[in-house]
Design a protein around this nucleic acid. Sequence first.
DNA 1: CTGGATCCTCGGTGATACTG
DNA 2: CAGTATCACCGAGGATCCAG
Lengths: 138, 138
Amino acid sequence: MEVTNVDNQLTPVQKKIEKIFSLEDGIGICPVRGILDRIGDKWSFLTIMQLGGAGTLRFSELRARIGDISQRMLTVTLRSLEEDGLIRRVYYPEVPPRVEYSLTPLGESLLERMLDLAEWANSYKREIVRARQQYIAG
Amino acid sequence: MEVTNVDNQLTPVQKKIEKIFSLEDGIGICPVRGILDRIGDKWSFLTIMQLGGAGTLRFSELRARIGDISQRMLTVTLRSLEEDGLIRRVYYPEVPPRVEYSLTPLGESLLERMLDLAEWANSYKREIVRARQQYIAG
DNA sequence: CTGGATCCTCGGTGATACTG
DNA sequence: CAGTATCACCGAGGATCCAG
């Protein structure tokens, strides 16, 4: 096995990585993958973004804003986000029923990270596009 | 349509969100989704992490480290990461052939963001676990 | 050793119909 | 209005074989 640095000293980045993969503590979840499943999921991402932008939305409003999401997937997505404590669901037992969704503080915290990521993506998109063109050419 | 803040002033977060969704510039890609597809993809994530931790790895080394990735998916993942300019592929036309993979500066830059995210996930995992237990209970 | 090509399975997703 | 239930589909991903 080859290592880039001459001696066995780990770089700060390598230490971080090692730490992440060693986090098999009692909780029994990989702390990263659970979150990544949220961020990487198209519907979770759009839902959080919409709620972050609007503050509070009803089911049908959310559906209309996202546009091309099916009723089923919105339900599934909302349930899993609620389960993780990222969104708050308030049910008003009126007739007809009304349900309002909003981000929890935890959800807002995640939203911030997503926006950080978005800004990074935005600032490097030119490089990526150039790389793709170069890949096709070469 | 209801807005949380009294007047029509947009919060900083809302401005960011609006900016992201309005980024339909000439390039014609959503700068976020392309990156998210990389970060959110299990195999892309693991591959970048492994390369970040090791510096340079051969195909079979990478496969062994990730462990449960199929040959096919490793190939597919590496191709797409290479296409986006996130990893570098060096082919040595020896017998038998040898191929070495490593992160490009762009890839290392993405790795940093992934680690930021990982640290966030790690610091909030307790809250998430608690939320899940509470969801089951309630 | 590093993949390319092929076939096939399985689960996520959408469409549809129905309820409190 | 806000879901639940069911079915049918498709494509990501695994297994396998083959080539340079």
